Simulated scan of single mutants.
Amino acid sequence: MSSIILASQSPRRKQLLEWAEIDFEVIVKATDEVYPPNLSVEDVPVYIAREKALAVQTFAQTVYHAEHRKEIIIAADTVVVLDDRIIGKPADRQEAIATLTSLSGKAHRVITGVVILEGKKEIAFADITKVWFHELTQAQIEFYIDKYQPYDKAGAYGIQDWIGVVGIKAIEGDFYNVMGLPISRVVQQLQLLKN
């Protein structure tokens, strides 16, 4: 029997797996989201996702040591990149305002690193979506931050929120990747594991 574990407490990743009709459970083990300074921006979210997956795999092996059960662990990390600089989650209102102001009227990349572990087998990849924002007014930025409190989101926004509806001009790539998980690619990889 194979069991799928999502190594993330993101409600959006959970929702995307549910939409894909995948049975899974959520197990999260705290990891430091630090990475070696020499990594490329594309490799950073994959590195962090791998750390999350390995922490949960170690925990799952100690709890579910019965031989009849095999775990498939899915972990992901999303970063927003503007001018080759990673923009993380905002610490407070001022940082969120500064972040959205810097994204306003420009294109940026959203990179989600995904690591899927099954025993010693690992599938790892990064999915990249380019996002263009309209010019945002100060009033729009402050309204969004005060109403939606995007402090748990890389880049201080959620594409599925109000800001995505009114502020995003175009995207090139997977919409769901910007939400936090390139779900169709994950489903394809899970099917390959089953074969």
Rank of each mutant, 00 (worst) to 15 (best):
E21A: 15
K52Q: 04
S3P: 00
V187N: 02
Q191H: 13
Q160S: 02
V165L: 13
V46N: 05
I159D: 00
Q189W: 10
L82W: 09
G164A: 00
R85E: 15
V186W: 08
E51W: 04
E21W: 07
E135H: 13
T137W: 00
Y144T: 06
R50Y: 13
E142S: 05
H108E: 07
A124E: 13
A75S: 15
T99Q: 12
K130T: 14
D146A: 08
P36C: 09
G180T: 01
Y47W: 12
P37E: 13
E42M: 09
I97H: 08
L193F: 11
Y35L: 08
A156T: 04
A170Y: 09
N195G: 14
S104D: 00
D161M: 04
H134R: 15
P45W: 04
A76Y: 07
D146C: 10
A126S: 14
A55D: 07
A96M: 02
R93V: 12
I159V: 05
L181W: 01
R93G: 03
I73F: 03
P150C: 00
T101D: 10
L39Y: 06
A156N: 00
S102G: 03
S40A: 12
L136W: 04
T112H: 00
I171T: 05
A76D: 04
A60F: 10
Q149M: 07
E18S: 13
T112K: 02
E172H: 08
Q61L: 11
P37C: 00
Q138K: 13
D43Q: 15
V115M: 05
E51Q: 15
E142F: 05
L190S: 06
K153F: 02
L190I: 09
G180I: 05
L192I: 15
Q94S: 11
V114K: 04
I86L: 04
Y176M: 11
L17N: 07
A124G: 11
I97C: 02
L181S: 07
D23K: 14
W162Q: 03
L39H: 01
Q138T: 12
R13L: 06
T137I: 06
V28L: 11
E122Y: 02
E135C: 11
Q189A: 15
E25I: 15
V46H: 04
V28R: 12
A98W: 04
E42C: 07
V46S: 01
S10R: 09
G173L: 08
I171R: 04
N195P: 07
V41S: 07
E95A: 13
E172R: 06
K14H: 10
A76T: 06
E25Y: 12
R109K: 14
I22W: 05
A53V: 05
K70N: 15
L117N: 00
E71N: 14
D174M: 04
G158H: 01
F125N: 04
K29S: 12
I116H: 07
V46F: 01
K70Y: 12
